[in-house]
Simulated assay, not measured.
Amino acid sequence: MSHDDPAHKLKAIYSLTEKGIELLPIIAEISRGSRKYEPVDPLLAARGEARDRLGPDANRQQMDALRRVHLVS
């Protein structure tokens, strides 16, 4: 979804939809695989590894946080 940025008429503000948020577990698995087989940026790798340490509940927690930010009425 998007809407015009009131501060700049040539900009738009984009937000995730529920469908986009539900892709997070798939994206997390792709990230895990890329860290295993390809060299990646150390900062990005550290974020993924921290997420992996949080265990199976990490996806739900991050999806809930995304919903609070992006699905605000």
Results as ranks from 00 to 15, higher is better:
31 S>E: 12
10 L>Y: 09
67 R>F: 09
52 D>E: 15
48 G>I: 07
7 A>Q: 10
43 L>S: 13
50 A>G: 04
40 V>N: 10
18 E>F: 02
13 I>L: 12
55 G>W: 00
61 Q>L: 14
62 Q>T: 08
48 G>V: 08
13 I>F: 00
66 L>Y: 00
16 L>N: 05
8 H>S: 10
63 M>S: 07
58 A>D: 13
59 N>Q: 07
33 G>N: 10
59 N>T: 09
60 R>I: 10
24 L>S: 03
36 K>G: 00
72 V>D: 12
5 D>P: 07
68 R>Y: 06
36 K>V: 03
13 I>P: 02
2 S>C: 07
52 D>Y: 00
53 R>V: 11
34 S>K: 12
61 Q>R: 01
40 V>T: 14
3 H>N: 02
58 A>R: 01
73 S>A: 15
17 T>G: 04
43 L>I: 06
26 I>C: 03
51 R>N: 05
68 R>D: 15
3 H>D: 03
11 K>G: 08
30 I>P: 01
51 R>I: 00
64 D>L: 06
1 M>E: 04
42 P>W: 02
65 A>Q: 13
17 T>K: 05
55 G>Q: 04
32 R>E: 06
38 E>S: 14
23 L>P: 02
34 S>D: 08
63 M>F: 04
62 Q>L: 10
46 A>L: 12
25 P>G: 13
16 L>T: 02
69 V>W: 03
40 V>S: 14
59 N>G: 14
58 A>V: 04
